[in-house]
Design a protein around this nucleic acid. Structure first.
Lengths: 186, 186
DNA sequence: GTTACCATGTAACGTGTTACATGATTCC
DNA sequence: GGAATCATGTAACACGTTACATGGTAAC
C-alpha cells in the first residue's frame, strides 16, 4: 500500500508525469524500490480520485494528454499521517527509507520513533541469530553441508549488523533535523 | 515462482506436512523467507500435480487427512535444473540462499557460478552508488535535508559492502564442497 | 468437556507482472 | 519520412493476503 507514499514523496520533490516517475522513480528511492509504469499509472489515478494529487493536463484536444501530477494538501496530510504511523509491515525497512525522504522534504514528522522501533526489533533478531549460531554451529568440526548452512545464517547476521550500524549513524542526522525544525537555519 | 524450490529444499531435508512447513518453513530458510500456510498448501498441491512430490496420506476414512509430503526424483531433477539456471530475478539474493541450502543437501550443482554472477552485479551497483555519492554528497556544507538523502544512499552502499564481504567468505566454502564432491569425505 | 494446538482447505480481494496497443514529439 | 523516445492506457493473469470454515488430537 505504501507505494503511494513513495510516489507522493517523489512528487513533492518534483512534480512529474507518470512516465517521468517510472523512469527515475526518484533519485535514491528508485535505488531500492522499483515499480512498473502500469503500477505507477494505476496509483496516480487512484490518488487523483482520492484528492491527494491533481493532474495538470497539457496539450490540445488530442485524446491522450500529457499529465503533470502535483501533490495537494490532502496528499501532504496523508503522507504526514503515514510517516507518524508505526508500520509493522514486512518491508518496514524500505518504508523507513521513504519516510526519511519524506522528512527531508517536509521537515520533522516523527520518523525518529520509527527508527528506534526498528532498531529494537533488529537487535532482537540479531540476538536470535547469534543464539542459533552458538547452538548449531559453534563446533569446529562442521561438515561441508553444515558450513554452507552456517553461511546462510551468517548472511542474516551480517545484514542485521550492517543495518544497526547504519541506524546508529542515521539517528543523529534525524535528531539534528528535528531539533532545527522544518525550515532551514539562517 | 521459486517458493516451490524453497519448499522442495526444505522437504528434502525433512519430509513434512504442510503445517509443519508453515510453522518452521525450515530452520534457516524461514529466517529470510516467510510464506503463509495457504501459499504453502497451494504450492504443495501444484507440485504434487506436477509429480515433483507425493503426499503420503495417514489417518482413516475422515474427509481431511494428514498428508506427509516427500520429494520425488522429478522434484530433485527440477531443483537441480533451477540451481544451475541463472536467476535474473529481482530477489536473486534470497534465491541464492535457497540454492546454497539445496547444495548443502544435494551436493555440487553449480551455485558457485550464481555466486560469481551476483558478486559482479553487486560490485557494479556499489560502484554506481559511490559515483552518485561523490557527485551529489561530497561537499561538507550539506543541508539537513541533503544529509538525510545521503543517509538513504548510505544504506544502499552499506548493504552492498556487507553482501560482498559475505560472498567473499562464502566462496571458499562452496568451492571446498564442489572439490570434495557430493558425498562426505572419509 | 473444553481449551489449545495440529492440520487442511475455500473464497474473495488487492497487488504486481506481462503482453499488447496507441499516440505525440523529437531528431536525423 | 522513419526511428527513437516520451507518454498513457487496457486486458489477462499470477501471486500473496486476509477472512472464514472445518475437523482431528492431546491435555487439563
Amino acid at each position: 500500500m505504501s507505494i503511494q507514499h513513495a510516489l507522493l514523496t517523489s512528487l513533492l520533490e518534483k512534480p512529474s508525469t507518470g512516465y517521468g516517475l517510472a523512469s527515475r522513480f526518484d533519485r535514491s528511492i528508485g535505488y531500492f524500490w522499483q515499480a512498473s509504469h502500469q503500477q505507477i499509472y494505476r496509483e496516480l489515478r487512484r490518488m487523483a480520485a482520492a484528492g491527494w494529487v491533481v493532474a495538470e493536463e497539457e496539450g490540445g484536444e488530442g485524446r491522450r494528454k500529457r499529465k503533470t501530477y502535483q501533490v495537494l494538501t490532502a496528499g501532504i496530510d496523508e503522507l504526514k499521517r503515514w510517516v507518524a504511523t508505526p508500520s509493522g509491515s514486512a518491508d518496514s525497512q524500505r518504508e523507513l527509507l521513504v519516510k526519511l525522504r519524506a522528512e527531508a522534504v517536509l521537515g520533522p514528522l516523527g520518523a525518529r520513533d520509527e527508527l528506534l522501533r526498528l532498531t529494537a526489533s533488529h537487535e532482537e533478531r540479531l540476538a536470535t541469530y547469534r543464539q542459533i549460531e552458538s547452538r548449531d554451529f559453534s563446533g569446529n568440526d562442521l561438515s561441508p553441508a553444515q558450513q554452507l548452512q552456517h553461511r546462510v545464517l551468517c548472511m542474516g547476521i551480517l545484514s542485521e549488523e550492517s543495518w544497526l550500524a547504519w541506524a546508529q549513524d542515521t539517528l543523529p542526522v534525524l535528531e539534528n533535523l528535528e531539533a532545527d525544525g522544518p525550515r532551514s537555519r539562517d
